[in-house]
Design a protein around this nucleic acid. Structure first.
Lengths: 137, 137
DNA sequence: CCCTAACTTAGACAAGGTCTAAATTTAAAG
DNA sequence: CTTTAAATTTAGACCTTGTCTAAGTTAGGG
């Protein structure tokens, strides 16, 4: 798969300095940053970047399906660049660390038709919570 | 199982008028109200009840394990009085309706040890999303 | 090189929630 | 029945997260 910036170029996404630094900050595969964290990192390279632009850019990337919004705790949303591989999240209830995990079965198959109330189900989000080895000791 | 107010009485929970109306508003089994909705309903019976008290009471009920906090959409948290029966949620992406559902398997069993990163997992939260029959037509 | 639509900006605004200090209420002791 | 200390409630200030707007700036086709 070509990298994120290449994919965006192919889609008539006007590439500005601001959009570039935001997507660069989201480079890794196992990163789960809040909008404010992304803004702070982006501002290290482009000091005048505004909060509004970071929010706008993130919304566009979500709409394009290039990143996912994760609602882990009712606090700030986090943005997950690992959008092209189905996965779920495992979160430490103490330190907040987030891991990507991959359940064995298709999570949808556990929900029998009688429990679907006629819905056309399109998405399943699973969050596992527990104590990480570091916090347990 | 004795009802909510009885259980709380047995636990030295000082029962005030404010706490009573909040717990009464949470009476049903299949209700998923926001704090503001709970405040509005409570205020119909006890007009001077404050927002802070509603938030305090809800936090205490969560800590006591009598209700559950549900984070459905990154907007306001919802409070679910159906805390003593394991269940998950099915949400309409259009109208926001929330249904309680009961998957067949233990959701934890789908996560193999190799995907647990040494965590001691204590909770799994699953949210199914789709279009309800009403919105589909 | 110019033009215009697209983009970015600062800052006001809004929703949801937390905190604080003062007032009130509870219930236990005298 | 009073006193009293601790628990509870209150109004409103404040905080965090996110959205909106109007004005300024920029990308890139012609």
């Amino acid at each position: 798969m070509p990298d994120l910036l290449d994919r965006l170029r192919e889609r008539d996404w006007r590439l500005t300095a601001q959009r570039r630094v935001v997507t660069e900050v989201l480079g890794g595969e196992h990163v789960h940053l809040t909008a404010d964290e992304i803004h702070a990192l982006a501002a290290r390279r482009l000091p005048e970047i505004s909060r509004a632009t970071v929010y706008n850019t993130l919304s566009e990337l979500v709409a394009l399906g290039e990143i996912r919004e994760v609602n882990t705790d009712g606090r700030a949303k986090r943005y997950d660049p690992n959008a092209h591989q189905a996965h779920q999240h495992l979160i430490c209830i103490q330190c907040g660390t987030i891991k990507d995990v991959h359940p064995e079965d298709n999570p949808l198959s556990a929900l029998p038709p009688s429990e679907r109330f006629g819905f056309d189900i399109s998405d399943v989000e699973i969050t596992y919570r527990g104590l990480c080895p570091n916090c347990a000791s």
